[in-house]
Amino acid sequence: MFNRILALFIVSLTFFSTSTYAATPTEPLWPTLKIAYFGDKEIREGANDLLVIEAPKRAEDAAIVPISVKSLVAQTADKYIKNIHIVVDNNPEPYSANFHLSPELGLIDISTRMRVDQYTFVRAIAEMNDGSLHMVSRFVKASGGCSAPAGKDAAAALARLGKMQIRMRKPTVGKPVQAQVIVSHPNYNGLQFDQKSRLYIDAHYVKNIEINYNDKPLISVDTGISVSEDPSIRFTFTPSEAGSITANVTDSEGQKFTHSKNI
């Protein structure tokens, strides 16, 4: 899904590039992006009865903008949010993440961190199990100043590449608990130019993070170059018994990293 969307986007990138790279976009990109990513499917806008998206009003640090999405209606086996797509309109690659969600998650409460280097809408589009699409959005202002989407210490990020953490408060059976998966990765976006070689540094980024609870999938996220260095996924789930959480990470060079935590 993600790759198809990515390929579609790259094909159409040339059409957008002028406005995509302008510091303050004048033309709204969404109508074009909507067709590129969702075709002629109808998207219900302002779906505030179903979803809440939170993002800071201003990207304090262009490299790290926390974005969270919560559902207001609990997942049930009959009716649940199957996917949440995150689109950051004015990023070099707007289609930023696709969360595949289990019906067993209860209320959805997920967050991640994105690169946002200019004024933009950030959108969360919920895809229900019946295929219907529901969208909420937030406007985020650029940070300005010397904040750049590039990492602060590339050497340090590379040195701990693949190191992972699964963090959570002490879980109780039957009660929702917050957890976080972080993987250390420079997430090179392929847009950095090396003046010496006159070439772009190859993109090298985390493509997928799969989070399982007792071998059953809870969340699987397809991620792209909009995701910050050291990708972080926060989520809430309700443990039904003792067991373990496992996170499997795959990056764009096919490297795999895995980490487990007993609960």
């Binding site: 302008a22 280097d117 750049a148 590039a150 990492g151 950095q192 130019f193 090396d194």
Partner: peptide, 19 residues
């Protein structure tokens, strides 16, 4: 590390600071 720092920020700074 200045050369690497310039090249990784150049495009972003150019576009932002022109404005």
């Amino acid at each position: 590390k200045l050369p690497a720092a310039i090249s990784s920020r150049e495009a972003f700074f150019a576009k932002t600071f022109k404005e």
